[in-house]
């Protein structure tokens, strides 16, 4: 649990388009790393490459290394399916499985891993829902469809689904961008609690959010349309937001562009 990630000279492509150029970055365990940057800078692409979701898009490919506690998830011997089972992901829009009940949504990952024991599944469902601060709200309607919850509850359901399998890393792709401020606050509080157990990487467009939830911030930028995105700088969140080393970062966080 809670492994570290070392990205080494990672280049990402969509077909012939070079989307991300040479990212090298270390994500320490039990820590929240935020990716910020203007639209199109490749921060979501980098995030999706960390659990090999990037290559799901036809024509997309990755070059370079992503080491999970020293093991390259892109080495030829590694099955992408098993990578995704140990690296959880939460998406921009809540995406519970609409035909499944709340409980079945939470334990979907375990079911995929072959767990059939009802008692064990019930225990895990409760633990994950408590972990996602959703248990109190849904404990009386675990058999109801997950689609019946509010947007914020659905997103916490998705977080519960991701942590139910006790992943090594939790990736979050703008998890609050479709939510209202109160739900956003609930998710941010949750991130603060989850980092005790998990390594978390979060992409956000909201710089205040990055400042609030993360320990380390990576700023991505692109030279222009059609140019690949690059990692400009990565540092402690406090330093990035108070005294960044590059002019571009300062311009971005002070709202001068992006």
């Amino acid at each position: 649990m809670a492994k570290r990630i070392d990205i080494k000279d990672l280049n990402l492509f969509y077909g012939s388009f070079h989307a991300v150029d040479g990212v090298t970055l270390a994500v320490p365990p039990r820590n929240v790393t935020a990716f910020i940057g203007p639209s199109g800078c490749g921060k979501s692409t980098v995030l999706r490459s960390l659990n090999r979701m990037h290559e799901v898009i036809p024509g997309a490919r990755a070059e370079g290394q992503v080491l999970l506690d020293g093991e390259d998830i892109y080495s030829a011997a590694v099955d992408p399916v098993s990578v995704r089972r140990t690296i959880g992901m939460v998406f921009q829009r809540p995406n519970p499985f609409p035909t499944m009940s709340i409980r079945d949504n939470v334990v979907a990952g375990l079911r995929l891993a072959g767990v059939r024991d009802r008692k064990r599944l019930d225990e895990v469902a409760e633990r994950a829902l408590r972990g996602a601060n959703l248990w109190a709200e849904v404990k009386d309607r675990l058999g109801k469809p997950g689609g019946g919850l509010s947007g914020g509850q659905q997103q916490r359901l998705c977080i519960a689904r991701a942590i139910a399998v006790q992943p090594d890393v939790l990736l979050m792709d703008e998890p609050c961008s479709a939510l209202d401020p109160i739900s956003t606050l609930a998710i941010e509080d949750l991130i603060g609690e989850l980092k005790k157990d998990y390594t978390i990487v979060i992409v956000t467009h909201n710089m205040q959010q990055a400042a609030r939830v993360s320990d380390q911030t990576a700023f991505f930028n692109l030279a222009g349309v059609g140019q690949p995105g690059k990692l400009i700088e990565v540092d402690d969140t406090e330093k990035i937001f108070s005294n960044p080393s590059t002019k571009a970062t300062e311009d971005y966080i002070s709202g001068r562009f992006g």
């Binding site: 659990n51 979701m53 799901v56 399916v81 098993s82 990578v83 995704r84 089972r85 140990t86 959880g88 992901m89 998406f91 829009r93 995406n95 519970p96 499985f97 609409p98 035909t99 499944m100 979907a108 990952g109 995929l112 891993a113 998705c158 689904r161 991701a162 399998v165």
Partner: peptide, 27 residues
Amino acid sequence: TPTPHLEGAIALGATKWEVIRTTVLPF
């Protein structure tokens, strides 16, 4: 089948057949 559902299943570590079973067929 909505892409978010497909990606949700893939990100949980579903194989091709499991993606079909959990998202494409119910939908």
